[in-house]
């Protein structure tokens, strides 16, 4: 039955202007045009979105959970990237 097995697409929805596209779920469609339309019907039928991306699931390269430590731990010890790292004297504004 492989000839009827439509490929899988991942759907990303921008819920309103000013926000990023967020992963909403997946669906099956024969091609990108239909994936987009199916996504519109399925994931925004209550007006949840203003823009949609569809991506063939097979085209996604994911970081492996194995690499979690090398990938993400270095970021955890760089608190100086976060604004709360810095002490600012009381009363200084617009910083």
């Amino acid at each position: 039955m492989t000839n009827t097995d439509w490929p899988l697409w991942e759907v990303f929805v921008r819920s309103r202007r000013g926000l990023s596209h967020t992963h909403a779920g997946s669906l099956h469609a024969p091609d990108a045009e239909f994936a987009l339309r199916n996504a519109r019907d399925l994931y925004t039928r209550r007006g949840e979105g203003v823009s949609i991306w569809v991506v063939p699931a097979a085209a996604i390269t994911a970081s492996s959970p194995d690499e979690k430590d090398p990938f993400f731990e270095p970021a955890a010890d760089k608190p100086y990237r976060h604004p709360t790292f810095y002490e600012i004297p009381e009363g200084v504004k617009h910083l």
């Binding site: 990108a32 063939p56 699931a57 097979a58």
Partner: peptide, 10 residues
């Protein structure tokens, strides 16, 4: 028309 661009999940 597209050569079939979708696919199984990575």
């Amino acid at each position: 028309h597209t050569g079939g661009t979708g696919g199984a999940r990575a």
